[in-house]
Design a protein around this nucleic acid. Sequence first.
RNA 1: GCCGGGGUGGCGAAACUGGUCAUACGCGCCUGACUUAAAAUCAGGUGUCUCCUUUGGAGGCGUAAGGGUUCGAGUCCCUUCCCCGGCACCA
Length: 811
Amino acid sequence: MDRYEPQQIEAKWQRVWEDARAFYVSNPDSPEQAEREKFYMLEMLPYPSGNLHMGHVLNYTLGDVVTHYRRRQGFTVLRPMGFDSFGLPAENAAIRGGGHPREITERNIAAIRAQMHRLGWAIDWDREVSAHQPEYYRWTQWLFLKFFEAGLAYRKAAPVNWCPNDQTVLANEQVIDGRCELCGAEVESRNLEQWFFRITAYADALLDDHATIDWPERTKAIQRNWIGRSEGAEVLFRVEELDLDLPVFTTRPDTLFGATFMVLAPEHPLVEQLAAGTEQEAAVREYVKHTAARSTVERETKEKDGVFTGRYAVNPATGEPIPIWIADYVLMEYGTGAIMAVPAHDERDFEFAQRYGLPVVRVVEPAGGTAEESEGAFEAHTANERLVNSGQFSGMPAPEGARAIVEWLGERGRARPAVSYRLRDWGFSRQRYWGCPIPIVYCRECGIVPVPEDELPVLLPEVKDYRPKGIPPLASNQEWLHVPCPRCGGEAVREAETMDTFVDSSWYFLRYCDPHNDSAPFDRAIVDYWMPVDQYIGGIDHATGHLLYSRFFVKVMNELGFVGCREPFAGLFHQGWVRLGGSKMSKSRGNVTAPDQLAEMYGADAVRLFILFMGPADQDMEWTEEGVEGIARFLRRLWRIVNEVSAEAPRDGAGDGPLARKTHQTIAKVSDDIGRRFVFNTPIAAVMELVNELAPATNDPAARQAAETVVSLIQPYAPHIAEELWERLGHERLWEQPWPVADESLLERETFELVIQVNGRVRDRVEVSADLPEAELIERAKASPRVQAQLDGKEIRQAIVVPRKLVNFVV
RNA sequence: GCCGGGGUGGCGAAACUGGUCAUACGCGCCUGACUUAAAAUCAGGUGUCUCCUUUGGAGGCGUAAGGGUUCGAGUCCCUUCCCCGGCACCA
């Protein structure tokens, strides 16, 4: 028998699959084909950082197992791959002098593609797309224009993360603990004109449609949290002197009688008007200026401070004037940017009131009975409260009081029920080079003008220096920047900012369906055939980013009539982190184990098996190469035994002996684990068990069937060795063989091992026929000498019989 | 602080709806076979304590800790401890 040479057979079969176009799949082009049962298997596309790490290997091997399993179950499986190829790392490499970001990126893509081929993943490479290719980003731009026309992409001034060192806007995910991910400088908040997608208009749809998708509960919880829907009321506070109304949002309108002052965010547009002409004017201006200079970290960690505006508003419930303050613990981005402060029942307001000596009025108390007079103290909310000190509403339970007060003020137009969200609109402009240009022109006469569709793509221009210097790098190319206005022909400049890369990845799964379409982003009929993605696999770190954005994009595209589905990902699974020394593997941490070396040493099949055998795929795992030897040993053992069986084992028969039964039990176990439970480590153990039983029984009449089953079941994990052994067993093209089905009659046992317990402790086990009645089982149990010894002289008070399992005597 | 995930052998982990001496499968370790030797391979052993008429057998204790429900709990309930991750002035 020849030796197991993984490198050799892996190269051989990868060539065979490629020649046979084994994993390429066509779009339906006839009604019959459209009837095929489809399965869209997708893993989050990689950022081409240069090398795959074990986290990628886990992610894509999981997808690969599912792909093979579903294919062999008869589904037409779409399993594409692409690259999230715009983004900062390539640009930073370019800044360091590594060449053009495009060259760096394409070099990296080539390297990763080669690694992916080496691992033998079943991918339809004809559908590969990369975000940075003009054929792709042309349609990213086209979609932007559609969103813009629909009023869902707009410009506004908003606070953004600004790195004073790199002179650029940073995405939230580039800010770690208030510092720039790249240079470590403290991030400032700056008010800049930015592009936004109106994702907040879809907040309720994003929440409600959770009911329609099969996602992990915790991922939905994270999104719910992030969207942060709060129900409450908007209440108007009157400023008589200036003849204006200040709206506030509150979730506790029942505490309105306890509102003893108001607080506005320093950025509130009315701050200046309020303070004007009061003796506080200078102090207010000073505070606003001071706040603007504060870093985000400082603003969030310092003790609360603020300043009186010199104005008073009328509490609409009490009719009393209350002072209006400004303080930066109130955020302009949430609610109305102004609050009614109820220091008796809100910790933050209390802290503020203490510091500035503002009055504290208690307006709710626990329903159980009167807590002793605690005037002037903070009192946390409790489950059952009723109103006090609240005029005609005193005595009401809090929720009822809230409704009544809103209704009462509503009659005079001073309050209405309102909903507020934590979710903000998605700011997607980046003052960076390596991203998708935003197809917009600013004209002196016409203002914001979209680039006409037939002029797309707006190609990313060449620039001399990628370094951001406060203005986007694209703006440094004067020739590119200045264009005639598409509308009036007058002088105009291009938008020089680029899009967040999350825009690119919000629709790539649609492009895969129809990747070569050059007259539209995709054909709706084709997309409607494949979508939604049946199984999506990727990290949970994208819960509030990519996964939320993609859901938003699909909802908009659905409403614009581009796609039939309302949700992109029907099923979702998160693989755990592969850690090294406690932190997750990533290029930026430099703790990457390249799978290449491992594949070189042990073969791709060993790497694939090993990463899935390490533990449950959805749990984090600490990377160690200890144990990979065991997998290599298993493969050699498999090789030897199957070769032996192929040469020696009898050709016919299988019978219903122990090996035949074990074979069918293993089929049932593996199918259930992959198909229903979505666990991937235990099937490997189950196949190992079967191999262990087969090893000493290669002459068993069931040996050949057992060997074939082992090879067939391990194929999704280790497709190369499986294919080779399948051939040696005298068969062809395992990749398209139907998935084995367990023979039910061999799963049902005629006899079973009856467990006999005394007081819940196992005392003996006897082999009995499966069809014995309960009474007979009890008799058999009593007959056991070991049980006799335990029962000795004691009285049996009860006998519990679990059919086909056990008898338990209670004495 | 809040939310989520965990805590089982020297290690990675099994035990899926409470029911077969809990620890499958693999790693590591120990013993033996093969070998000049090593590697590889193969066979066997491997929670812990106690006892016995000791090539074998019997029993006690063991799933972070304590309590509860149950004929029976790693699995369900309560309390506590520890580890990991995420969010954190959102009115």
